[in-house]
């Protein structure tokens, strides 16, 4: 990535300092890091501080984080298993899936750390979904399809929970930071599969019929209470694709449960 440096470039300490006065957590983090801390560093440190307080988390937050943790457990084990299945992932995309796998493992650790003793236990997974995807770890195409399914689901799942994290600023920000990473993964896998990077209407494309619930409700033309069908004279697929839609916890769990042993 060519712009890593410019994105992470240091800001004027004066600016960072003034920025920090806004939130206590940021202020505390700034104190620890010193006045030369860059703004991105400070945000990261504040996030870390907020994520070491599992015992103090309200029940509502614990529920959201455990919901997220369940999905991250699923993704983490999925990629772990796939990467350990010899001959499954070709060399050309191996690095991509190693990176994705590392992210999912990091998400598990982050959420477990945040939840502390409240962390849900890892379920026992069945990635074949009782045989429906029996060759998931021997057929690259099946693996890719499930990868897309999990990533697109993850994006909708986090989006659907953002509102429940309002008021817990640092945790909300962390959740948003995971949410967009899942979206990056989803797009990457979709492109590898020869699909558009984004969801078109509510179409599952070439995905198996069992994955349709992941895409139901994605063709939403009411945004912010307004009908956007005529917006900018754009094609409806562009309007639909411009907005990813949330999915309720119940619907996400119904999808996830296909892959969780009772």
């Amino acid at each position: 990535m060519t712009d890593n440096h410019s994105i992470l470039a240091e800001v004027d300490p004066d600016v960072a300092e003034r920025m920090l006065s806004r939130r206590g957590a940021f202020r505390d983090a700034a104190t620890k890091l010193g006045v030369l801390a860059t703004a991105p560093m400070v945000v990261a440190a504040a996030s870390t501080a907020a994520f070491g307080q599992g015992a103090k988390l309200p029940r509502k937050i614990v529920d959201v984080l455990n919901f997220a943790l369940t999905l991250e457990y699923l993704e983490d084990e999925f990629y772990r298993t796939a990467l350990a299945s010899s001959g499954l992932i070709p060399s050309e995309t191996r690095q991509t899936f190693e990176t994705i796998g590392k992210h999912e493992a990091a998400h598990v650790e982050l959420l477990k750390g945040a939840l502390g003793s409240h962390a849900a236990k890892k379920p026992t997974f069945d990635f074949t979904a009782k045989g429906a995807f029996g060759d998931v770890f021997s057929n690259y195409k099946t693996f890719l399809a499930l990868s897309q399914a999990f990533e697109d689901t993850g994006v909708r799942a986090y989006k659907g929970q953002a509102g429940n994290l309002m008021g817990s600023d640092e945790i909300l920000t962390i959740a948003l930071q995971i949410h967009s990473v899942e979206a990056r993964h989803a797009a990457e896998v979709r492109l590898i599969r020869g699909q558009p990077a984004w969801i078109v209407s509510n179409s599952r494309g070439d995905m198996p019929a069992a994955t349709q619930p992941i895409y139901d409700g994605e063709a939403d033309f009411t945004q912010g209470g307004a009908d956007i069908k005529d917006l900018g004279g754009l094609p409806v697929d562009a309007l639909s694709g411009a907005f990813d839609e949330p999915l309720s916890k119940g619907k996400v769990l119904a999808i996830a449960k296909m892959f969780i042993k009772a």
Partner: peptide
């Protein structure tokens, strides 16, 4: 492997303040 090279070692995307 830069499907998300701005993503940090914790698997987190960037979150920047408006000034930045």
């Amino acid at each position: 492997s830069n499907n998300a090279s701005v993503v940090n070692e914790k698997g987190l995307d960037q979150a920047l303040m408006p000034s930045d």
